[in-house]
Design a protein around this nucleic acid. Structure first.
Lengths: 151, 151
DNA sequence: GCTTGACCTCAAGTCGACTTGAACTTGCAG
DNA sequence: CTGCAAGTTCAAGTCGACTTGAGGTCAAGC
């Protein structure tokens, strides 16, 4: 199997060497050894990097991805998590579609400032903050001064 | 028009007071005055907060949103930006749909580890890192050691 | 008069995913 | 032999969107 130095891997996968070092440190990829000081990678690292990219695009964190990639012999957990993520993605897609429609409506609205358009305002009322999640979901829920609920 | 203190706004919009103060500091919302030390908000701040939430969900940064909310009299810029964002969202949705499908395929794959499934591997080959963007697009492009291109 | 709770300010901390910089080694070309 | 590109380590910095903590003010209720 073909061996590559970090520069070649970087060129092939489109990531900078610093990222590859970082991924190795995190346990996401492995170099097969060293030639002098330099890391040597096996060609199959490229497939693993594709997998990592897919995971990131799906919304998994690097830690999640590392856990899944390294969890040999627990396939059904994988499958379940993947299916959950797919469902979550589905909901995200629904949400984004609604937002896109709203955005187009606003863009096409003849009112000089769509903000003042009354139909837009009505729509907005249905889209109050608490009913929406961000595209990038909240990082840490460890707050004391939490997100409040309507009384 | 109804006046509210920060606590009431917080309750109504579901955001913690700290966020509201932060938004005010950023120029996203305005308090109409003070009662003693305490901020006083006008009821229309709630609509503005909905707008901000919508903007965030659409992928605008808070700075973008502030610029748009405060750019009175330049509606066609708004309209254009909104339409662009809608198109961008459309592309995101396409991408996410593809990823969701891939995820479902992986979840349903009978191979004990879908990673080893050959059809999955073929699909992956088409989904190399460089052809994908993250759900959360890259923050700063000010790097010297940039994301590389295939030669 | 004292506590309690809600508000205030300002600086500093947090999160994840990397990047950057300084200081160093190695291999190869001229 | 010298230079240089490309590799290395390790600590620290960056980004956006907030949160947290310390320390202070103020009105209401007991």
């Amino acid at each position: 199997m073909k061996e590559m130095d970090i520069g070649e891997v970087a060129r092939r996968c489109g990531l900078p060497p610093s990222t590859l070092r970082y991924y190795e440190e995190k346990g996401l990829i492995r170099s097969t050894g060293r030639r002098g000081l330099s890391r040597v990678f096996n060609a199959d690292v490229l497939q693993r990097l594709s997998l990592i990219a897919l995971g990131q695009c799906s919304g998994f964190s690097l830690d999640d991805i590392a856990a899944m990639l390294n969890a040999d012999g627990q396939p059904e957990i994988d499958h379940q998590r993947l299916a959950e993520k797919a469902d979550e993605l589905d909901r995200t897609i629904q949400r984004l579609s609604a937002i896109r429609d709203e955005l187009r409506r606003a863009a096409a609205c003849p009112a000089p400032r769509h903000i003042e358009c009354s139909t837009f305002q009505k729509k907005l009322a249905a889209v109050r903050p608490r009913s929406l999640n961000r595209i990038n979901p909240g990082r840490n829920q460890t707050s004391t001064d939490k997100r409040q609920k309507a009384p």
